[in-house]
Write a protein that binds this DNA or RNA. Structure first.
Lengths: 204, 204
DNA sequence: TTTTTGTGACTGACTTTTCAGTCATATTAA
DNA sequence: TTAATATGACTGAAAAGTCAGTCACAAAAA
């Protein structure tokens, strides 16, 4: 692989990166292809060599960012299965959210929340590839970890993710008025949950 | 029987209702004034009698739906202050969310989540009028209700709202794959919290 | 090696479409 | 009658999408 192929791959990557920024700043309808082209340092026509139209571009970037992400998560999960909820929380969930915050992939999540209803096919991929498998794993873990009197907890694995989602949205909208510390809020929530868990060998 | 004012008010209301639907389906940029006019059963020009432009229409509907809502909440809060978190949850929070689900105002919340960053003035009103006062009240209530060892809980009053937000977003995106029962999820979350509260005289 | 021919990534001016906003005209309540 | 309300064809600007032509590099021929 040399010369033209390498350059083409770079061009494509530049378009994807520029499009991701533009789409997350302005949303699907608000994004301007002229602006994406300018940001990518290419002519507008070039975009149409790589993507059929604006919609294909949008779907393309979501897939290209999402799929490697899910593979990454799977690899992480495969290499060491979490044994307890605390293990899961400290060594898998928290690092994942930290990594998420640190790069541009949060933007994809925010994009999918607002544009999802208009891209049902994309929403389905997102659900099947990222949400469902992780929710099911978490649910299985909760089923064997919560005390019988709190069995209902295993019906709502979403409760662990709720502070993340809420914190991310809160900070995008209200950071300038009152910022929330996402990690601390997640820890507070986990503390709420952990008292209902069968005793593991932790707690300070 | 029909004064001009009455008819005008009806026309205006029809426009507001149609705009709310169109804006929540397509977002601000995606909404079409022709479509709003058709849904409202008026000509496009009519919209411009009542609203200066598209932006004024958007801000108008948000204010018109939001402000009565906050007045309603304030009235409810004034008529009987919640004494305990359980009282707050059962007699104020839960009914409020139930009412929210039952009418078109959830749409406004979803709209503000996706369009908020592009309408900072609107986001500020939303925060000042609805979010801040309620978060502060809840925080005050938590401060005097949680056991000292869980004092951190009072720093995150958002945790009570997190399942609502998460459930609403979950259901808009993923209802067709796996619906969550919002009320049950809220109850599960409240159960998590209630164990950290100083003993009140409840629990069945 | 040097020259010629072939290829496809890339360009940007151009065409087409889409829509917010306007306005001359019509309708209707008072 | 007249003032307020409503209409919808029209306009201009902006944005999506197209395509004939250019050029850098690769492959083949000399």
């Amino acid at each position: 692989m040399k010369g033209r192929t390498v350059k083409a791959a770079r061009t494509r990557a530049a378009i994807v990166a520029a499009a991701l920024r533009e789409f997350s700043e302005r949303g699907f309808m608000g994004a301007r292809l002229d602006e994406i082209a300018q940001r990518a340092g290419v002519a507008k026509g070039t975009i149409y060599i790589y993507f059929k139209d604006k919609e294909a571009l949008f779907e393309g970037i979501v897939r290209e960012v999402l799929l490697p992400y899910s593979q990454e998560l799977e690899a992480k999960a495969k290499e060491r299965q979490p044994t307890t909820p605390t293990d899961f929380f400290e060594n898998y969930f928290l690092p994942t959210v930290r990594a998420l915050q640190a790069d541009q992939r949060v933007e994809i999540l925010r994009l999918l929340i607002s544009e999802g209803p208009r891209f049902p096919a994309l929403t389905e991929i997102y659900y099947r590839v990222l949400v469902e498998p992780n929710i099911l794993k978490l649910q299985a873990l909760l089923r064997r970890s919560v005390k019988p009197e709190a069995a209902v907890l295993a019906d709502f694995p979403q409760l662990l993710a709720a502070p993340v989602l809420t914190g991310l949205i809160w900070n995008t909208l209200f950071e300038r008025f009152r910022e929330v510390d996402l990690e601390q809020m997640m820890r507070a929530q986990f503390k709420l949950i952990s008292i209902w868990l069968k005793d593991e060998l932790d707690e300070p």
